[in-house]
Amino acid sequence: MKTVVEIKNVKKRIGRKEIIHGISTKLYPGEVFGFLGPNGAGKTTMIRMMVGLTKVSEGQILINGHSITTDFEKAVRHVGGIIENPEMYKHLTGYQNLRQYERLFPEKLPAERVDEVVKLVGLEKRIHEKVKGYSLGMRQRLGIAQALLHKPSLLILDEPTNGLDPAGIREIRQYIRRIAKEEQMAVFVSSHLLSEMQLMCDRIGIIQNGHLIRVEKTETLVDSGSHDVLLNAAPLEKVKELLSNRLYQQVENGLIVRAEKDELPELIHHLSKHQIDIYEVTPMRKTLEDSFLQMTEEDQHAYTQTASK
């Protein structure tokens, strides 16, 4: 398949400090790629390198086959983005701002394109007002509008739902998914809002302390956490005895038992054979949040262990 972005062993050093430690990944047309990591993980730094705002210390970033370092103009030609907050010229109107970005491209756009993106993000009513008076959510929308102006093949969004209300978040999310599919555009979106990513992304890469520690399909990542079940059964003492070879934890409404999905029927048979009354068996579907926290904690743990050696 055609790749839109290829990141090859990219490192970033600022002064003596290495902030990004050799990240590699690829993005394909039509996919929404989530870049997930806690504060200070290096998401914004990575994005800044992808759009040429800061230099790549080592490695390569290719966009549509063009290196961002040696072939900047060709590489960014098909990139649209928001980096951190969507800062605009406050003394200009939303419309005048969009015209600014329109004129920064060598080729002229059809006159109606600006109106088109304004409509897409739902800013028609306020577009001729000065940005000074915009709410954060409106600025965010204007930011997305400028990013889409030139129909990029790569859309880079650094925490795009920052400052939007729940309805706005949903709208933008659906919108991003839709245009990614319709326009076969690759979307690179960063966030530390995990629940967000779960609903928006096809694949998720988890970044921690400048390392890309895992890249997975969203389903895989979400499912990988689901090996606990809530078991409500009586008498409890006997259940505990029968499960003594397993990890479990007593909670208010029963036991949380560690068991893979395919082990469940056997487990239930086993319990009923011993005359246990089973009231409830519920798989504890972990959210991405749980797996994320678990993973980054494990990583943190490994990290501190190696550090202390």
Binding site: L53, E73, V76, E87, K90, Y101, L104, P106, Q146
Partner: peptide, 12 residues
């Protein structure tokens, strides 16, 4: 104002 970020990511 931070607008430099949106200014310098264009093919210019």
């Amino acid at each position: 104002s931070g607008t430099i970020k949106l200014l310098l990511i264009r093919p210019v």
